[in-house]
Design a protein around this nucleic acid. Structure first.
Lengths: 159, 159
DNA sequence: TCATAAATGTTTCCTTGTAAACTATCTACA
DNA sequence: TGTAGATAGTTTACAAGGAAACATTTATGA
C-alpha cells in the first residue's frame, strides 16, 4: 500500500507523445467511450445510435426526403438505402414516391415506428447521464457547445 | 426567384430536434469533418490517421508489444494484426518474437519506417492548422482539454 | 509435475459503411 | 418538342473494423 502511494503514477499504455493532443485521436477515443456506454446501456433495445437517429429525424420531419435525411445526418445515400430498407422490413418506416417527383422517396414512420420512438426517447437521449464522466455539468455543456460550433451544427432547438 | 428571396431563412437540413445536443452525434459529425480535411490534405501520402498513429507509437516506444500498442491506441488485436502485417509488407515495421515470452510480438520500425515518420511528422501533426475551423485558438485548446479529460487521456507530454 | 487456466496473437466470418457505376426521372433550352 | 444534362435513389463490389473461435505458449495450483 505504501509503495502504491509512493510510486509515481505510471501509465498502463505506451507513450503517445503528442497524439494525446491530436484532435482526431481524441475524437475517436471519445466516440469509442460513448459507444461502449451506449451498448452497455441500450444494447438490449437492438438499435444503434445512428439507426435511432434516423427514426428520430423522420419522427420530427414527416414526409422527409430520403436524400435530405441522409444529408442531415451525414449518412451516405448508399447506406441510407440499406437502413431504410431494413426499417421497412421491421415495419417502422414507409416509403412513398410522391407524384410531384417520381425519382424521390418520402419517409414516414408507421404507428409502431412512432410508438417505438416515443417509448425509447428517454433512454436514447438520457443514457449519457449514466456515463459517469470525469466532466462536471458545466464542462459537459461547454464540450457540447464547442463540438457543435466546430462541426457547424446549429444549437437552436428548432429550425 | 421572388419566392426564394421572400421566404424565411430555412435550414438546408431537417430538424434535428435535440440531436444537435447529443454528445454521440456531435462527436461523429466532428470526426467526419476532421477526417474529410485529413484526406484532402494528406490523402496523397497514402496513410490514414490511425495507421500513422501506429507508426508514431512504435517510433516513440521501440520494442513495444503488439498487444500494448493495440490497447494504447484502442485498436482491436484482430485489426492490429492486419495493420502490422501490411506494415511488414511495406517494409516499415519488423516483428520480433522475444525469447522471454514466445507468445508475444515486439514491434520496431525499420530504417525506412523511421525515415517515413520523421519526414511526415510535421504534416501529420500540423494538418489540423489548415482546417479553417470556426473555433479560435483558445476554444480549440479548451476543446482538446475537455475531450482528453472526458476520454481519460493523459495530457502530459511524456509518461 | 501434470492438469487447468490465463495470456498473446491469429484466423475466419460477419457487419458496417463507401465509391463508382447504373436506372429512372426531371429540367432547361435550342 | 426533344435532347443534353442534372437529380434521386439503387446496385454492386469492396474495404475497414470487430466478434468469436482457434493455436500456441506461459502461469497456477492441487
Amino acid at each position: 500500500m505504501i509503495e502504491a502511494a509512493v510510486k509515481p503514477v505510471v501509465k498502463t499504455g505506451g507513450d503517445l507523445r503528442g497524439l494525446n493532443h491530436s484532435l482526431g485521436f481524441l475524437l475517436r477515443v471519445s466516440q469509442l467511450k460513448v459507444f461502449d456506454h451506449f451498448f452497455k446501456k441500450l444494447g438490449h433495445v437492438g438499435l444503434k445510435p445512428g439507426e435511432y437517429s434516423v427514426l428520430w429525424l423522420i419522427f420530427n420531419n414527416p414526409r422527409i426526403r430520403q436524400g435530405l435525411a441522409a444529408q442531415t445526418l451525414s449518412i451516405k445515400n448508399a447506406h441510407m438505402t440499406k437502413l431504410i430498407r431494413s426499417f421497412e422490413e421491421s415495419g417502422f418506416v414507409t416509403r412513398t414516391i410522391p407524384d410531384g417527383d417520381r425519382r424521390a422517396v418520402e419517409l414516414d414512420l408507421t404507428v409502431s415506428g412512432r410508438d417505438f420512438v416515443t417509448f425509447h426517447q428517454q433512454e436514447f437521449f438520457g443514457y449519457i447521464q449514466s456515463l459517469n464522466s470525469p466532466l462536471n455539468d458545466a464542462e459537459t455543456k461547454e464540450l457540447i457547445r464547442l463540438l457543435a460550433k466546430f462541426a457547424c451544427v446549429d444549437q437552436e432547438l428548432t429550425k
